[in-house]
Computed example of a mutant assay.
Amino acid sequence: MVCIRCQMVVRAELEKLGIQYSYVKIGEANILGDVHPEELVQLSVALKKSGLELMDDKKSILVEKIKNVIVELVHYTDDQIKVNLSDYLSEKLGYDYTYMANLFSEVKGITIEKFYLSHKIERVKELIVYDELNLTEISYKMHYSSVAHLSNQFKKITGLTPSHFKKLRNKRRDSLDNV
């Protein structure tokens, strides 16, 4: 659940089933009280129809939390983290980074760093398409050390320079769920 619409779907399904909750946020819902197993099955089926899934194993939940922290960091905040990504994730989630990195790679098939960079580049694409900021401003907003650094990473991941990408406005961006 990495977007606002996903949260709305989860809230609606919980309300349809009469399941009380205290909050629904990116990747997580806090259910109040006990939920009958039959209601969990109904919720699971309803969520699958919307492309979402109910998770109950701790490893999958941790991987989702890692993804959600990164998505929130890249797409929903302009703050620059004061420490490196590994320390930030460890601090935020309360797990050893090596454990999280190994688990993430095992489950997702890519490293946390590649996932993070993919999301940064998707955000850069979004900012380029919006055409409100120039590349220098985007570089600053996304906390790159220079436009050259942004351009090199952009080309490495997309195969295009940012300026060439801008010319190809019709190029579809990936949804956050597919990054």
Rank of each mutant, 00 (worst) to 15 (best):
residue 96 D to L: 08
residue 74 V to N: 02
residue 158 T to G: 04
residue 83 V to W: 09
residue 121 I to L: 06
residue 85 L to G: 05
residue 112 I to Q: 03
residue 94 G to P: 01
residue 6 C to K: 01
residue 99 Y to E: 09
residue 170 N to A: 11
residue 77 T to H: 14
residue 57 D to S: 09
residue 135 L to M: 10
residue 30 N to A: 13
residue 150 L to V: 05
residue 85 L to H: 07
residue 102 N to Q: 15
residue 42 Q to V: 03
residue 175 S to H: 12
residue 30 N to C: 11
residue 5 R to D: 10
residue 177 D to T: 10
residue 113 E to Y: 13
residue 40 L to N: 02
residue 91 E to V: 08
residue 3 C to L: 00
residue 2 V to A: 12
residue 88 Y to I: 05
residue 156 K to Y: 12
residue 156 K to D: 15
residue 52 L to I: 03
residue 178 N to Y: 10
residue 157 I to L: 13
residue 6 C to I: 03
residue 1 M to I: 08
residue 79 D to V: 12
residue 86 S to P: 02
residue 20 Q to L: 11
residue 93 L to H: 04
residue 70 I to M: 04
residue 91 E to M: 14
residue 36 H to P: 00
residue 106 E to W: 07
residue 177 D to N: 12
residue 121 I to T: 04
residue 3 C to P: 01
residue 49 K to W: 01
residue 109 G to A: 07
residue 3 C to Y: 00
residue 103 L to P: 06
residue 29 A to C: 10
residue 88 Y to P: 00
residue 25 K to E: 14
residue 39 E to I: 03
residue 70 I to Q: 03
residue 18 G to N: 05
residue 18 G to I: 04
residue 146 S to A: 08
residue 19 I to P: 00
residue 164 H to K: 14
residue 101 A to M: 06
residue 77 T to C: 09
residue 47 L to D: 06
residue 110 I to L: 12
residue 67 K to R: 15
residue 93 L to R: 03
residue 146 S to E: 10
residue 40 L to A: 01
residue 13 E to F: 00
residue 84 N to H: 12
residue 4 I to M: 00
residue 157 I to W: 04
residue 22 S to D: 04
residue 142 M to H: 02
residue 90 S to N: 06
residue 51 G to P: 05
residue 11 R to C: 08
residue 116 Y to F: 15
residue 30 N to R: 15
residue 141 K to C: 04
residue 156 K to V: 05
residue 147 V to I: 13
residue 171 K to A: 07
residue 153 Q to G: 07
residue 5 R to L: 02
residue 66 I to Q: 04
residue 1 M to S: 13
residue 80 Q to V: 14
residue 5 R to W: 04
residue 148 A to S: 15
residue 166 K to S: 10
residue 152 N to Y: 11
residue 11 R to V: 09
residue 12 A to D: 15
residue 29 A to M: 08
residue 132 E to N: 12
residue 111 T to W: 10
residue 133 L to Q: 08
residue 174 D to F: 13
residue 135 L to W: 03
residue 156 K to I: 09
residue 3 C to M: 03
residue 21 Y to S: 06
residue 84 N to M: 06
residue 73 L to K: 11
residue 20 Q to E: 14
residue 50 S to I: 01
residue 104 F to R: 02
residue 55 M to S: 08
residue 143 H to Q: 01
residue 84 N to F: 04
residue 21 Y to A: 02
residue 82 K to Y: 13
residue 86 S to A: 15
residue 49 K to F: 06
residue 106 E to F: 11
residue 165 F to N: 02
residue 19 I to M: 06
residue 168 L to F: 08
residue 125 K to H: 03
residue 108 K to Q: 14
residue 115 F to K: 04
residue 73 L to I: 01
residue 43 L to R: 02
